Structures are given as structure tokens and as C-alpha cells.
Simulated scan of single mutants.
Amino acid sequence: MANQSAFIDGYWRSGDLAKIDEDGFIYIMDRKKDMINRGGEKVYSVEVENVIYTHPKVLEVAVVGIPDEIFGEMVKAFIVTKENIVLEKDEIIEFTSKQLASYKVPKEIEFVSELPRNPGGKVLKNRLKNA
């Protein structure tokens, strides 16, 4: 529930990050709290997730930022594979390296049987960050 601090000049600040293109179209990029800051470079978790979702062996994915001593945060992907499928970390790194800038490629990958969710079905990324 939003409180008064979420309103500035009568506008509600949702926490969504968006961009407007030259034609005036608005694109929601990510949630501010889900953005990863890797050495000053902004990584939108949803962008990395969208690339990983296109891998034919991936059923679900969630990407979070985890602490990194040098760059502040690093990209970590939690992946649920399709049933009875074997997927290696190197496959994901190679796959994402072809489609993303190097600082957006997950440095850590963890395969899980399921992603933690709230009763509404939303992935609990804060639980993954603290795992």
C-alpha cells in the first residue's frame, strides 16, 4: 500500500523505471528495486531474464543482483529447467554472451527446482537475493 511519501507533486511514484522513445512510446524497463548496479552500469533484471527465457531448455528464470566486492553488484540467475532436461552453466553464459553486453551476462547461475513465490504468484526476488 502506498503511503503519502510515495506521492510527489500529486503524482504517485510506483518504483517502475521507464523510457520514452523518439515517437513518444513509453516502455517499462524494470522495477527500481530490481535494477542491478554493476560498477556504475545499470542492468535491468527483466532484460537479462527475457534473453534467458528464449533458451529452449529454460522453463523459468529470475535474475537478481548480489554483492560483489569490486563492482558493487553482480548478476545472478536462478533457473528452473524444463522437465528431464540437463542444462549447464556454461551453456547459459555462452547463450547470453551472444545477446547481452558482457557486464549483463550472469556471473553466477544457480539451478533450482522452483522459484519462491508469494500467494499471488509473484517471484520473491528478495528471498533469492538473501539465499
Rank of each mutant, 00 (worst) to 15 (best):
A2C: 02
A2T: 03
N3W: 06
Q4F: 10
A6Y: 10
D9E: 14
G10D: 01
Y11D: 05
Y11H: 12
R13S: 10
R13V: 08
D16I: 05
A18M: 09
K19P: 00
D21V: 00
E22Y: 00
D23F: 02
I28G: 04
D30C: 03
R31E: 04
K32L: 13
K32Q: 15
K33D: 14
M35S: 13
M35R: 13
M35D: 07
N37A: 13
N37E: 12
R38V: 15
G39T: 11
G39D: 12
K42R: 15
Y44G: 04
S45T: 04
S45F: 03
V46K: 15
V46H: 08
V46E: 11
E47Y: 07
E47L: 10
V48Y: 08
E49G: 09
V51K: 14
T54H: 09
P56N: 15
P56R: 13
K57D: 11
K57E: 10
V58L: 08
A62K: 05
V63Y: 05
V64D: 01
G65S: 06
I66P: 05
I66G: 00
P67D: 10
E69F: 06
E69R: 13
I70C: 10
I70L: 14
F71D: 15
F71A: 14
F71G: 07
G72E: 14
G72A: 13
G72R: 15
E73R: 11
V75A: 03
V75C: 04
A77G: 12
V80T: 08
T81H: 08
K82R: 13
K82F: 00
N84G: 07
I85E: 14
I85V: 13
V86I: 13
L87E: 08
K89E: 15
K89I: 12
D90L: 11
D90Y: 07
E91K: 07
I93T: 14
I93R: 12
E94N: 15
E94V: 15
S97L: 10
S97V: 10
Q99T: 01
Q99R: 15
L100I: 06
A101S: 11
S102W: 05
K104T: 09
V105C: 03
P106D: 09
E108V: 01
E108C: 01
I109M: 05
E110L: 10
S113K: 14
S113G: 03
E114L: 06
R117F: 05
N118T: 12
V123K: 02
V123Q: 04
K125M: 00
R127V: 03
R127L: 06
L128C: 03
L128K: 03
N130E: 09
N130C: 01
A131M: 12
A131H: 05
